[in-house]
Amino acid sequence: NKSRCTICSKLAEIRHEVSVNNVTHKLCSNHCFNKYRLAN
């Protein structure tokens, strides 16, 4: 079950899903999750 990561755009296994204003951001790693948190 692979999806495209919101941060790095890599097609990968999604580890984190963050839902903001009915938009789901898919994040493939802790690294991308941290980058997402810093950016938002």
Rank of each mutant, 00 (worst) to 15 (best):
K2V: 02
S3L: 10
R4T: 12
R4A: 11
R4K: 14
R4M: 09
R4C: 03
R4E: 12
R4D: 04
C5S: 01
C5F: 00
T6V: 07
T6G: 09
I7E: 13
I7N: 04
I7C: 08
I7M: 13
I7A: 10
C8P: 00
C8V: 00
C8G: 00
C8Q: 01
C8I: 00
C8E: 01
S9E: 07
S9T: 09
K10L: 05
K10W: 00
K10S: 06
K10T: 08
L11G: 06
A12V: 07
A12G: 06
E13I: 05
E13H: 02
E13G: 04
E13W: 04
E13V: 09
I14F: 02
I14G: 08
I14S: 08
R15C: 08
H16M: 04
H16L: 03
H16W: 02
H16Y: 03
H16A: 04
H16K: 08
E17R: 07
E17F: 07
E17C: 10
E17W: 03
E17T: 12
V18G: 04
V18N: 06
V18W: 06
S19H: 08
S19N: 02
S19Y: 05
S19V: 12
V20C: 03
V20Q: 10
N21E: 12
N21V: 05
N21K: 10
N21M: 07
N21Y: 13
N21A: 14
N22H: 09
N22M: 06
N22S: 12
V23E: 13
V23P: 02
V23M: 06
V23A: 13
V23T: 13
T24Y: 05
T24F: 11
T24I: 09
T24A: 11
H25M: 08
H25A: 15
H25T: 12
H25R: 07
K26L: 10
K26D: 02
K26V: 13
L27F: 11
L27D: 03
L27R: 01
L27H: 00
C28V: 00
C28W: 00
S29M: 02
S29Q: 02
S29K: 01
N30W: 02
N30E: 15
N30H: 08
N30C: 01
N30D: 13
H31G: 14
C32E: 04
C32G: 02
C32R: 01
F33N: 02
F33V: 10
F33G: 04
F33I: 06
F33T: 05
N34K: 08
N34L: 09
K35I: 04
K35S: 09
K35F: 05
K35W: 05
K35V: 10
K35R: 14
Y36G: 07
Y36I: 09
R37W: 04
R37H: 09
R37A: 13
R37T: 14
R37V: 12
L38T: 12
L38V: 15
L38N: 08
L38F: 02
L38I: 12
A39P: 06
N40P: 12
N40V: 05
N40R: 13
N40L: 05
N40M: 01
